[in-house]
Nucleic acid binder design. Structure first.
Lengths: 221, 221
DNA sequence: ACCACTAAACTAGCGGTGTAAGTTTTGTTG
DNA sequence: CAACAAAACTTACACCGCTAGTTTAGTGGT
């Protein structure tokens, strides 16, 4: 049954199905043959549209990153923009937690990720941060967001609390919290983000003077 | 050639060889057959000592985590202890960057990771942090360290700077820095860690009073 | 209207993977 | 010395990513 009247496969359709499949069954269970089956097609047919499995995963990851909102850098002060970006970034990743391991480790050439980095870097430089500092800040926040989305020890705790209690006495309490895994993760994220931004604000004042350099892209210094 | 006079395989020997192999050739290239070959043995022989490939990887990951130094929590104030731990943690991960993706995504039951979490949590609580806060702080720092070890955009930038310059104007400078990838990563880590600790210190003073609660485990409050 | 060409599916198959099953021999223990 | 466990072996299964070659439906040119 070759060359149907209407193509059954599209890059977009493949990516959407792949995303749904990964969301539903996890990254290890995701294979080209299974993806093809979900599309009603034989395995190798995918290679008419993508050169490699990683290229498909890159497209999926790019779709996830593309949902991140960086508009704050155009309208708000750098700290508020960073905060909004970080939360949006986190939301995008936790919406598709199963591709995060791939996304986090990946160089790859994913336009959305580069566009995001560009927006953050540009916004920080425009706010007066020295270029090198802007690079570091963007990277540090990415580290934090990606790490938080990757998974917590809470997820790793086993069901039986008694099993570890004897060996690791302090974890008794923390262990109980594993039930509220998600809220722990979010609480840790909120706390860490606040601390990071607080520290950055102090650094900003120290390095650039409390007068503030170029505040919002207006009026030079 | 079954059952040699002296066993050729040991759990320890397997883990050591696996670590070396992953360090040398990367995680994707690591397979049970290749590991067995490196040990002068057929593939399935490994299963006399480990039930599954993941169990081997868990052991490797545990070995890496085991090198993290948490002794600071016994001797220094919480902020210094956190700083020392974070750097030690980072050093342990960057010493074996290739298993980090596995380690980061994995819950797994790895005693060293649990011992580490226990030491951090205990140290923070002893310093006066409320238990919930201690959990969050430990998690936030793990997020940051794991994220930073996983990979930076610097590593992801392609060789040809001109290729992206047109599309993402702000990245021109950052792009050049890709050559100094390692120093960028480390700079971002140092900056982020300082900011985090600064923010936490402020929070500590605000929440527990500038007098400090129980400073070093002595003298109740 | 025909013909060449391309696109998009197919089938067949290669080399590799993790691991289960059963075999054989060695070392240890009652 | 017999019985048993341990630790290697061989064989084999189902799956993996991907290549190669085949077949046909649609498309552009004359």
């Amino acid at each position: 049954m070759p060359r149907p009247r209407q193509p059954r496969l599209t890059r977009q359709l493949i990516v959407e199905t792949a995303t749904a499949l990964i969301d539903a069954e996890g990254l290890p269970a995701f294979s080209t043959r299974r993806l093809a089956a979900a599309l009603g097609v034989q395995g190798p047919s995918l290679y008419n549209h993508f050169a490699t499995k990683d290229e498909i995963l890159d497209a999926v990851a790019d779709g996830v990153t593309g949902a991140v909102d960086t508009s704050g850098f155009a309208s708000r002060d750098w700290a508020a923009a960073l905060r909004g970006w970080a939360w949006s970034y986190r939301r995008a990743l936790t919406a598709h937690p199963n591709i995060v391991p791939y996304l986090a480790q990946g160089p790859g050439r994913r336009p959305a990720a580069l566009a995001m980095a560009d927006a953050v870097y540009g916004g920080l430089v425009r706010a007066g941060w020295p270029p090198a500092r802007a690079t570091h800040i963007g990277a540090a926040l990415r580290y934090f967001v990606a790490g938080s989305a990757l998974g917590s020890f809470a997820r790793g705790f086993v069901e039986d609390p008694e099993l570890y209690a004897a060996h690791y006495p302090h974890l008794r309490q923390a262990h109980r919290l594993a039930e509220h895994q998600q809220s722990v993760d979010e609480g840790a994220f909120a706390l860490g983000l606040d601390a990071l931004l607080h520290g950055l604000a102090a650094e900003y004042d120290r390095a650039l003077g409390p007068l503030g350099a170029v505040e919002s892209g207006q009026s030079s210094g």
